[in-house]
Design a protein around this nucleic acid. Structure first.
Lengths: 337, 337
DNA sequence: TTCCTCTCCGCAAAGCTTTGCAAGTAGAAA
DNA sequence: TTTCTACTTGCAAAGCTTTGCGGAGAGGAA
């Protein structure tokens, strides 16, 4: 199809000198005379020569590509993080090879394998919601392939991770609800094996305790992050003799589903039930009522993850988790008039 | 850093045969005896050998990577299309190299250049909103590098394109408003040089005519797709002696800004002003009131774009625009009770 | 004049794969 | 026994770049 790209050989032929001289001239090697150097560089510029990354990669044993695996591409949370990673990577001359696990561990494993086949220099990953075993990542570690996790993390004793302060984030939510006079705070959590779930549950328990609220096991429900499930749970709570007066959930999906269900049933937010989500600016601001939510520093997460990635490249023994703080953006859905 | 990947040489050394024999054995070449073939394949499987794409690329003059340039990564519209492209590409054994133009023509040009340096086999692109000159793409065409545009397109006499039926989409909107008794329909369009703008304007004009509505130039405003601008335009319309009774806009951003402004001013949707957007399911369904909107077949756009890409690879002379139909999802924001 | 020392440039290998061609062995035919 | 065919396998080049090392030429010193 495409015409062949220009190579050193082409330049060398045109100038009637050897390939190695051209190569050296382009890198300003002192062995090469100023005249030839100039002639070569001028021609390269005029003809728009760029070195062939395949050849370089073969030689240097690197592709300058980072594999990025996310649960999905369309959720704002992930696309924003990807955007951050991409920006930082680009500044270092690296490209991103994107793969989606579609929240499935099988496809996650497949993605790891595909990226490996593509010879990426390393990977930045957010676990799928199903991921409760990690052999596919252990294999990477054993082969000393740089790896970084973000948000949903594991193996953090060996792998650099970027996470938010999940416990603190939930305590902030409890605090805010408590201040507004809400008493029975319900939490739709995620799959138990995910760090974001149990860290947030920890925050839920410690938060309740801290503010002298009673823990009712009925009001803590794990879920698989599906809309129908969230609606189902909401229904069950509303059927309780003592239903909750506040609900928060583990992500956008879940909490918007709750809001819609409450609205369908004519339950007023925030008067009857206060609602808080983990959502992004755009969604939260344009919903009605505007949604109080924990704001993730998404772009920062991406940039930090990329930063750790390069650190890991330089120092294979590097690990440790960077914890970023969240901010509770208080809007209408949790503030009674 | 990472340990070297396994190569044919490693297998050859281990089996005490030549590299070429290993290569042939893996591809079931008839010249190789069944015993050796089996031995090689077993070892390759056991050791998890995968061919080095850099070497293959160098040899075959292809990278099996497609460069994808979008205005941004975080808008659902684009991420969903990317997801579609990725899926189709993966099924063909291709990877995607992602780049964002951030709606800037300079960064778009830079991205084209970066992807070229990375030696992608071709590109799939959605123009930035600023893009009103196309030399950077003409250069690709001249070098016979496969190129496909989607949504915001140009050079469609030489480049395969995927677009939606913009004119028809807007006519549907006008039709629906008209049926609901709305008379003064206002349209916040986009930059004049984009096809999506002028095609939709064409639909606006033909739609008004078709349904016997008067065209008032004041109610057709181009904008640069910024929130503040949309709010500003809304304000100006509301200050008119005869304000519009229906508004639709060129994308999510714009129309949510309008809704928020109307809400701030206590103007009832859809009773006083009907509103329709070009938005995605998720946003539209969870807003209040639920937003009537033109649904893009985003995933299909992505898949189709990828399909055309491969067609273009096979046949360099191929071009032509595939037009996909939209559907107007009627929800609350445009239906008076 | 002869030898030494710079200066400047080219050869060749390595990194990995595919593939045309040459070469080897074994068996069969003469 | 000799020669030819058929069957297997290996050599080497190409695709592109970097770099150690060897070499050629020029100039100066002895």
């Amino acid at each position: 199809m495409a015409k062949r790209h220009l190579s050193l050989k082409d330049l060398a032929t045109e100038l009637n000198i050897s390939i190695s001289t051209v190569s050296r001239a382009l890198r300003n090697h002192p062995d090469i005379s100023p005249e030839i150097t100039k002639k070569v560089q001028d021609l390269a510029l005029a003809k728009n020569y760029t070195p062939n990354p395949l050849a370089m990669g073969l030689l240097k044993q690197e592709t300058r590509m980072i594999g990025v695996i996310v649960p999905d591409l369309v959720t704002h949370f992930y696309s924003s993080i990807i955007s951050g990673i991409e920006e930082f990577a680009k500044s270092r001359g690296y490209f991103i090879l994107l793969a989606s696990s579609y929240e499935s561990i099988e496809r996650e494993i497949e993605s790891v394998s595909n990226l490996l086949k593509a010879r990426v220099d390393g990977m930045i990953v957010c676990l799928s919601k199903e991921t409760d075993r990690f052999e596919h990542f252990v294999r990477l570690i054993e082969n000393e392939i740089p790896l970084v996790f973000f948000d949903r993390i594991c193996l953090d004793d060996q792998v650099p991770c970027v996470a938010i302060d999940n416990k603190d984030a939930v305590e902030k939510i409890i605090h805010h609800f408590h201040e507004g006079g809400y008493q029975r705070i319900a939490f739709i959590s995620g799959p138990a094996h995910l760090n974001i779930s149990h860290d947030r549950v920890a925050g839920y328990l410690s938060g309740l305790k801290k503010y002298g609220l009673v823990f009712d096991p009925v009001l803590l429900r794990p879920c698989n992050m599906l809309i129908d499930e969230a609606i189902q749970i909401t229904d069950e709570w509303l059927a309780l003799p003592e239903p909750p007066d506040a609900i928060f959930g583990i992500n956008d999906m879940v909490i918007f589903a709750v809001m819609q269900e409450l609205r369908t049933r004519g339950i007023k937010i925030p008067e009857e039930i206060g609602v808080i989500g983990f959502a992004d600016e755009f969604h939260a601001s344009f919903s009605t009522p505007q949604l109080t939510s924990t704001m993730h520093p998404t772009r920062e997460i991406g940039i930090k993850a990329a930063e750790l990635f390069f650190k890991k490249m330089d120092d294979p023994s590097f690990s440790g988790t960077v914890v970023l703080q969240t901010k509770l953006a208080i809007r209408e859905s949790s503030v009674r008039k």
